[in-house]
Design a binder for these strands. Structure first.
Ligand SMILES: [Mn+2]
Ligand SMILES: [Mn+2]
Ligand SMILES: [Mn+2]
Ligand SMILES: [Mn+2]
Lengths: 220, 220
DNA sequence: CATAAAATTTAGTTAAGACTAAATATATTT
DNA sequence: AAATATATTTAGTCTTAACTAAATTTTATG
């Protein structure tokens, strides 16, 4: 019932890659995990053969989580995101520093530790990037946000979450003032390069698809 | 330069077993680590073959840490003890609960995390059991304490540290009021069973060798 | 729709770190 | 000083989770 660090990381990535409802491919997983494709195939087959199975797998058709695999994934994600909040709140980490530390701690904390930090933090619902934290009974709250890339001129919105871990990108966004809670207005859209020009505070900023697909907003 | 969890646990145990200056035996290590003696031999040989070597090893003669192995051990011990203080101070763990959690966390925290908790705690010098915390530059402070077992009637002392991890024993000691900082007076000594009768606060308590060798005191 | 390209799986290795059984070396008794 | 008991090492296996090279399947393209 208690999985290895490797298995937990696989389950977490499969969760993320299948959030859209479509199965995760071997290659996508290999890329996300920095592991060779054959190794991924091997692990997937192992996870599918476990009883109870953690994943559903059809050769060449990708992989999905079973309900049990999903619980296990949400447990790790809950650990990760609570840890991030907690590193920021109690130790002064910045939002670009927390991910790497949480990535290792998530596998070793006890359920008792999880409960204690959740309580100490007042049972937060979002991590420092605005991502939703699975509840204690391992349900993922519904997310009603829209990617900024879907907005068009004259739409107003509030940034809810930033789906990125790269410290350089995160620092760049802080520099631009694009963090959760911030209000923005879309000024221009270029259909050629999909650039959006947005106004955030006083600033006028031009953003490419690489950024606008990672910022999720609530439309006003 | 960065060791596995297994190796770190070996180095830590070797440090503890060689604190008296004599080499650690294969069997003692096997017992402390809950690992079979042949496995211990294998790991010792590996650690001795590393370049630079982490241990000094002579077949059948036991094992000692090299200066480099000692630094690595002190790094893990510093992590462990700082984590214990921090779990008690910030998350309300009791002194019998912290060891197990710290035992896993010690291997995965970053140097940055270590610095942050040390600073947040005001650079503590002792863990919740009174054990000395290695300094940031990895020197172990000198310990001037005496095992309680060495005291005799009419001696007064202050408890400095309790060298135990067993939660049951630790809870027992809390119940008896025998924790770091407490003043005691030795009332009686029995040479037959080495029992000591001590007065702590109002209480008169009879303690066997199994306990008196684990409590270290400063004689008044 | 045939062929090339890309994705995936199979087959075979490797490394770390554990184990048991058997052999050997050291320590303790008689 | 043997004989016995204890401690330690050697030899051989196992599991986990990676890897590369080669084979196969699926997808894309002319
Ligand atoms: Mn993260
Ligand atoms: Mn991880
Ligand atoms: Mn401890
Ligand atoms: Mn440990």
């Amino acid at each position: 019932m208690k999985q290895s660090t490797s298995i937990q990381d696989y389950l977490k990535r499969i969760y993320e890659l299948t959030e859209d409802g479509s199965p995760a491919s071997t290659n996508d997983l290999a890329r996300e995990l920095n592991i060779s494709a054959p190794s991924v195939t091997g692990m997937i087959q192992k996870l599918a053969a476990e009883k109870p199975a953690l994943v559903e797998y059809q050769k060449h058709q990708g992989v999905m989580l079973t309900p049990i695999g999903k619980k296990a994934a949400l447990e790790v994600i809950r650990h990760h995101r609570l840890l991030e909040v907690w590193l920021v709140q109690t130790l002064g980490y910045s939002w670009d520093e927390v991910h790497e530390e949480a990535e290792r701690l998530e596998h070793v904390i006890s359920e008792d530790f999880e409960r204690r930090i959740a309580a100490a933090l007042g049972h937060p619902t979002r991590d420092p990037h605005g991502e939703l934290i699975p509840t204690a009974d391992l349900k993922m709250p519904v997310d009603d946000s829209t990617p900024l890339s879907a907005l068009r001129p004259n739409q107003f919105a509030t940034i809810q979450r930033v789906n990125a871990q790269d410290p350089n990108l995160l620092r760049h966004l802080v520099g631009l003032g694009l963090t959760p809670g911030i209000q923005i207005e879309v000024m221009e859209y270029s259909s050629f390069d999909n650039n959006l020009t947005v106004k955030a505070g006083q600033k006028i900023i031009v953003l490419g698809l690489n950024i606008t697909t990672k910022i999720f907003v609530e439309i006003k």
